[in-house]
């Protein structure tokens, strides 16, 4: 069965909770705040997403936590994530706006150690 996918534009921003933990990027709190996509409710429902989403495009793919957006105006087709290595996996030249395909997933959100191993295999 083909998994449901939708196209999203991911917009990155400076999130205070993620940047508060930016001196401990290998910690759990940073992962929980930085690897978190704020999505429009209708997009989450369309994909049947509860707490995690997989984002992919020609640059790569990454699994992040998903939260319902607190914006008063709906923004279907747009989603927001703090600027970090998680978002940079998907970025082309502009790290601020990234076009991706989103789908539901059961995979885990990687911690930074695992992510670095996966993204920079030559190093290890």
């Amino acid at each position: 069965m083909q998994d449901n996918k939708i196209e999203l534009t991911v917009v990155t921003y400076d999130d205070i909770f993620a940047s508060s933990f930016s001196r401990d990027k290998f910690g759990k709190e940073y992962r929980e705040k930085a690897a978190r996509l704020s999505m429009d409710e209708s997009d989450m429902n369309a994909l049947g997403i509860k707490d995690r989403v997989e984002l992919s495009n020609e640059n790569g793919s990454v699994v992040v936590y998903a939260s319902k957006s607190t914006a008063k105006r709906g923004h279907p087709g747009l989603a927001y994530i703090p600027l970090s290595i998680y978002s940079n996996i998907l970025a082309s030249s502009d790290t601020r706006r990234i076009k991706v395909s989103a789908s539901k997933t059961e995979k885990e959100v990687h911690g930074l150690e695992e992510l670095l191993k996966a993204c920079f295999p030559a190093r290890n």
Binding site: S22, K25, S84, I85, N88, A122, R123
Partner: peptide, 28 residues
């Protein structure tokens, strides 16, 4: 930590050149 600010493709190029980092914290 440039890796948190650049597309991964550029960070991969960065990882292939000789780099020296001075920092207080462990970062990518």
């Amino acid at each position: 930590d440039p890796i948190s600010e650049m597309p991964l493709s550029l960070s991969r190029s960065l990882s292939k050149i000789q780099t020296v980092v001075i920092d207080s914290y462990k970062t990518p």
